Amino acid sequence: MALPFQNVYIHRKVAEASSKPCMICFRPSTSVLITSCQKDFFYICPSHLSDRGFATAIVDEAAEAEKRKKEEMDKELEKLKQEFEEKQKRKEEKKSKDKDDDKKGKDKAKVKEEEADKLKVEEEEKAKTEQAVEAPSFSEYNLHRDFFNIRQQKYREKQIAKRNMERLKNPFTFPAVPKGGPV
């Protein structure tokens, strides 16, 4: 018998308003496992996903390596930014010391500090938006054999129920009333 779908489920998040009970513990959950062909889906708690008896994660080594490389580059970029900011502060301090008018130097330093703070805030907001865009990196899972069989059985039951409802709606499914008289 052909399988209706493969045992590869993609983990996705839904909005809090769309949360439904977990398949196992019936607590509200925003995590959903869905097949790639979108024939089957169910809500599940993230804690159950880490259970080896329920599902095993399919690790994409290329994506993991790319993710690690990007994290390293981000760390290096942050270091460079901090070093640059420190150098700029040192230069500003030297300039303010050299000037005769400390008041003007302090005012300029304050303005430059405010500008630097604004730039930091903008950079943090950009980083947050980039992280929000990157968030939908979906993980793939293989369900344990027994849970996968349960999901297939439920899918088959739904298909049978659907077929039965279509048959009940069709008036030609039922036998006709006898037209002759009683014998």
Rank of each mutant, 00 (worst) to 15 (best):
A65G: 07
F42N: 00
K162Q: 14
A17I: 07
I10G: 01
D98W: 10
I10R: 14
T56A: 13
I160A: 11
V111S: 06
H48P: 00
S139K: 15
C45R: 05
F172M: 08
L143R: 02
K162L: 13
S139G: 15
L3T: 09
K89Y: 10
R145K: 14
N7W: 00
V14A: 05
V111D: 12
I58T: 06
A65C: 11
P136Q: 01
A127N: 11
I160N: 07
S31F: 01
E64C: 09
F42K: 14
C37V: 09
E86P: 01
S96L: 13
A176S: 13
R52K: 15
E122S: 04
S50D: 03
S31I: 05
P182K: 13
M165H: 11
F174H: 07
E76L: 15
M73P: 00
S31E: 02
I10V: 15
K20Y: 01
E134C: 05
P28L: 03
E114S: 11
D146Y: 10
Q152A: 04
E76G: 13
K70H: 11
T30D: 01
S96Q: 13
I150W: 08
I44L: 12
E134T: 09
P136R: 04
I44A: 10
H11F: 02
F5G: 05
R145G: 01
K20I: 05
F41C: 13
Y141E: 00
V14Q: 04
D101Y: 03
E16K: 15
K120W: 07
I24H: 03
D102V: 15
A2G: 06
L119T: 09
L77F: 14
A109Y: 08
T129Q: 06
P136A: 00
S31M: 03
Q6D: 11
F41V: 01
K128T: 13
K13H: 08
V14N: 08
S29H: 02
A17Y: 00
E113M: 12
A15L: 00
F148C: 02
L49M: 09
P28E: 02
L143I: 00
A116E: 09
L33D: 06
E66L: 10
A15G: 10
L143G: 05
L80G: 01
K94V: 10
R12V: 01
F54C: 01
S139Q: 13
N142Q: 14
D100M: 06
V133I: 14
V59S: 07
K81N: 12
L77P: 06
E130S: 08
Q152I: 15
P28D: 04
A109T: 11
R167Q: 09
F42Q: 07
K79D: 13
E123C: 07
E114I: 11
P28T: 03
V121S: 05
L168N: 10
E92S: 04
D100E: 12
A176K: 15
C25V: 14
E71K: 14
E166W: 02
F174Y: 07
E125V: 03
E92T: 04
K13A: 08
S137I: 06
R68S: 02
F41T: 05
P136S: 00
E72M: 12
F54G: 06
S137G: 09
K103W: 08
K67A: 05
T35S: 02
P46T: 13
I34H: 07
P175Y: 02
Q131N: 12
K128D: 12
K39A: 09
K69V: 02
S137E: 10
